[in-house]
Simulated scan of single mutants.
Amino acid sequence: MTSTRPHDVREHPWSTGLCGCFDDIKSCCITFWCPCITFGQTSEILDKGQTTCVMNCAIYTLIYLLTSCACLYSCCYRTKLRREFGLKEDPCNDCLVHCCCMYCALCQEYRELKSRGFNMEKGWAGNARQQREVAMAPKVEGGMRR
């Protein structure tokens, strides 16, 4: 199997481990009760707003209800996340991680995006708007004066 990534690009470790749920109890609870929400939020950001959280959540739920194999769909987004940020395929193949530990994988992906500065509740548009506002903030020269 050949890699599509250039040979000089190093892969980086994930910001948290696969079982790092104590780092974000809230997202772990949401994922446990309704994994489609975590998947929807993560996939909207990875798709750079080309799809919505609601749409991705609905697709995930439909696949789960019809086949019980939503992990085969969600693992593609793990691969997309890893490639986007140069992350190691750890602890094993993306598909195996999702098939064996789907809830933990979804939480880890959520935490990874959060650690990279994304506000997961705002979605892609909210994060993009926030970045534009920061970029357009007026620069104060000479510091503050009384």
Rank of each mutant, 00 (worst) to 15 (best):
residue 141 E to V: 12
residue 141 E to Y: 14
residue 102 M to Y: 08
residue 2 T to E: 09
residue 82 R to I: 00
residue 116 R to D: 05
residue 124 W to C: 02
residue 9 V to E: 13
residue 65 L to T: 10
residue 109 E to S: 15
residue 122 K to P: 00
residue 75 C to N: 08
residue 124 W to E: 02
residue 41 Q to K: 15
residue 137 A to M: 08
residue 95 C to A: 03
residue 61 T to L: 12
residue 14 W to H: 10
residue 100 C to S: 08
residue 27 S to M: 04
residue 29 C to H: 04
residue 17 G to Q: 11
residue 22 F to G: 00
residue 33 W to C: 11
residue 101 C to I: 01
residue 124 W to S: 01
residue 134 V to H: 10
residue 28 C to S: 09
residue 33 W to H: 07
residue 59 I to P: 07
residue 85 F to W: 09
residue 108 Q to K: 15
residue 61 T to C: 13
residue 142 G to I: 09
residue 132 R to E: 12
residue 112 E to K: 14
residue 22 F to Y: 10
residue 40 G to K: 08
residue 55 M to R: 11
residue 22 F to M: 02
residue 39 F to P: 00
residue 104 C to D: 05
residue 7 H to I: 06
residue 135 A to W: 00
residue 66 L to F: 14
residue 118 F to K: 06
residue 29 C to I: 15
residue 135 A to L: 05
residue 41 Q to V: 06
residue 67 T to P: 01
residue 82 R to N: 02
residue 111 R to G: 02
residue 73 Y to L: 04
residue 33 W to E: 01
residue 22 F to W: 14
residue 116 R to Q: 07
residue 9 V to D: 10
residue 6 P to G: 09
residue 87 L to R: 08
residue 53 C to L: 12
residue 43 S to W: 06
residue 73 Y to N: 01
residue 50 Q to G: 03
residue 139 K to H: 12
residue 71 C to N: 06
